[in-house]
Amino acid sequence: MRFLAVLIAIAVIFPSSSHQFWPGFYDSSCPGLASIVAQVSLRRFQQLTNHPAQVLRLFFHDCFVEGCDGSILIGQTPQSSVERDSVANRDLVQDAFDTIDLAKQAVEAQCPGVVSCADILAMVTRDMLILARPGWNLALGRRDGTVSRADSALREIPSPRSGLDELLKNFHSKGLNLLDLVTLSGSHTLGVSHCSQFSQRLYGVNTSLDGTDPSLDPSFAKELKKDCPPGAPVTAIEFFDKAAPFTFDNHYFKNLEAGRSLLTSDESLLASFPSREIVRLFARDPPLFFFSFAASMDKLSRLGVKTGGAGEIRRSCNRFNAQ
């Protein structure tokens, strides 16, 4: 276990930055930026109990399609379907979009036309996670994307029903590895899942007499069936961690080992020896998980960033400037 912990610590190396993408990018052009965004983040954190999970999910879904460029924020257009329209994004919560809009409005009032929506989304996500527990030194300088397509979201965002091989293929295509996959899956210590995303584990397993996934703890499966009966409405939800649903901790990994995970994608982390060992380590060493999570979030926040003359600085986060 100690050897594996050392390997994880060695693997967690924060990337270097450039003059176009670094934490001090707005020091001269918008010196009060961090405070402006933090005030909005804190207010929304206090108003909305599940907000860190909602914003984190929005950020993840943005970065996995076209890179971290704010393309998920574009609203519906009559000309084409955008990322937000995709079935992969149908459960994203409007409150998260509203928070980014509020932060953008506050920033524009002080620094008009300077700060991208992509950077504001990244900053709010980091702020929400600092308020919940972990943080990292966020590089800035992202430009907003000018493309948002629903079919790209469906193709690029991992499915909650994916197995380990499919998840790894997806993560590897983004330059992320097994450690990042297990680590970022730990964000499921926060928030909720819709019953429809895991109902097949309760009623659709042909190899069991009652259709229940045998990897589920029987008492947990019974609880889930009570909360998510057959034909449950599409709005029916379940907390990932009922014991502490709004606390960022390592309970996700403890629950996973105990057969108390919701999604097939979660359970799949136990399918290989390396991923299973990382789960076991994080279940026993919270500080190591927090350290690894900060590093993986830093890597995630750098995916496909547009800098320099690429993209644009949107005036409004839900519209391209050309609209």
Rank of each mutant, 00 (worst) to 15 (best):
K299V: 02
T183F: 06
A221E: 12
G70V: 04
L7F: 02
P286Q: 07
V65F: 05
T247L: 13
S301N: 15
S301G: 08
S272Y: 02
K254A: 06
R43I: 01
F239D: 12
L56M: 11
S16E: 11
L131E: 04
Q20H: 11
F246N: 05
Q323V: 06
R315I: 12
G163Y: 13
D85K: 10
R2Y: 05
L216R: 02
A236E: 10
L179V: 12
S17K: 06
G24I: 03
C68P: 05
S35N: 14
I278W: 03
F25D: 03
Y26F: 12
G211W: 11
C195L: 06
T99E: 14
T307E: 13
L224P: 03
A236F: 04
P112A: 08
A118L: 06
W136G: 00
L216G: 01
V192M: 07
S17D: 15
A118K: 01
P287D: 13
S193N: 05
R142M: 09
T146D: 08
V12G: 02
A118E: 11
A153N: 06
Q79A: 15
D249F: 07
G141D: 02
L140R: 08
S152Q: 09
L48Y: 14
E257P: 00
V107R: 15
R142T: 00
C195E: 02
H188V: 05
L176K: 11
P229A: 08
F21V: 01
H251V: 05
D210Y: 09
D98F: 03
I278G: 01
S265T: 08
G145N: 01
L202K: 15
V182C: 08
M128H: 03
K104L: 11
E108S: 12
P134F: 03
S152V: 07
C111E: 03
G186Q: 10
A88N: 06
L262P: 00
A153E: 03
I237W: 11
F198M: 02
V87I: 07
K104Y: 08
R155K: 15
A53I: 10
F248S: 00
S215A: 14
R276W: 15
A283R: 03
S17Q: 14
